[in-house]
Amino acid sequence: MPDLPKDKKIILFDGVCNFCNDKVNFIIKNDKNDSFRFVSIQSETGKKIITYLGIDPALDTIILYEPGYAYFIKSEAVFRIIKHLSSSVKLLLLFNFIPTSIKNLIYDYIAKNRYKWYGKNENCLLPSEDINSKFIV
């Protein structure tokens, strides 16, 4: 298992997905308490974390890993992330009453179509200097 910060929540994301990269930038902008660190699922570190957690590497989802606690996927990960973001973003928690099975259907629909709608890169994008410390390589 890679050496991970114990006091940060780790978000594993699709590093070649334009939609996913946009959402990572959104989270960074709204993470006023510096709660999160980011790892591309395609990176060696991402693969090691997935193996350590026993997650199917073919699983097409965002993963929120809280070291020493648990991990969460799909809509459950999204809503747990939102809880830690700035107050204006927390308005999205109003949708958390929707049953997880329905939220995951919506999540899966977006995940299935994200490349078609938003495109993808050949390689993972490199973070800019000002946010580089938010990423685990």
Rank of each mutant, 00 (worst) to 15 (best):
M1N: 10
P2C: 07
P2N: 05
D3V: 15
D3N: 14
L4E: 00
P5L: 00
K6D: 09
K6W: 00
D7K: 09
K8L: 08
L12N: 07
F13H: 07
F13M: 08
D14F: 09
D14V: 04
C17I: 02
F19Y: 11
C20Y: 02
C20P: 02
C20I: 05
N21T: 08
N21A: 07
K23L: 14
N25M: 08
N25L: 10
F26S: 03
F26Q: 09
I27E: 03
I27D: 01
I28A: 03
K32F: 12
K32D: 10
N33T: 09
N33S: 14
N33V: 01
D34E: 10
D34G: 12
S35V: 13
F36E: 06
V39T: 01
S40I: 01
I41N: 09
I41K: 15
E44Q: 14
E44R: 14
T45I: 14
K47F: 10
K48N: 12
K48A: 10
K48E: 11
K48H: 09
I49R: 08
T51A: 14
Y52K: 12
Y52L: 13
G54R: 00
I55F: 01
D56M: 04
D56R: 05
D56Y: 03
D56I: 04
P57Y: 05
D60G: 03
T61K: 00
T61D: 05
I62L: 11
I63K: 00
Y65W: 04
P67G: 01
Y69W: 00
Y71S: 01
F72R: 12
F72W: 13
I73C: 12
K74V: 06
K74P: 09
E76R: 12
E76M: 10
V78K: 01
F79T: 05
R80W: 10
I81Q: 07
I81K: 08
I82M: 09
K83T: 13
L85N: 08
L85I: 00
S86N: 14
L91T: 10
L91G: 15
L92S: 13
L92M: 12
L93N: 06
L94F: 15
F97Y: 11
I98N: 06
I98R: 05
I98S: 07
P99Q: 05
T100M: 10
T100G: 00
S101A: 14
S101M: 11
S101G: 04
K103I: 03
L105K: 15
I106Q: 03
I106R: 03
I106F: 07
I106Y: 02
D108I: 00
Y109C: 14
I110T: 04
I110R: 05
A111C: 01
K112R: 14
N113L: 08
N113A: 04
R114M: 06
R114P: 06
Y115P: 01
Y115M: 04
W117Y: 02
Y118T: 04
G119K: 08
G119M: 05
G119V: 00
K120S: 11
N121V: 05
N121G: 05
N123C: 10
N123K: 15
C124M: 14
C124Q: 13
L125P: 08
L126D: 11
L126Y: 11
P127I: 02
S128M: 05
E129T: 12
E129Q: 13
S133E: 15
S133D: 15
F135L: 09
V137A: 15
V137N: 15
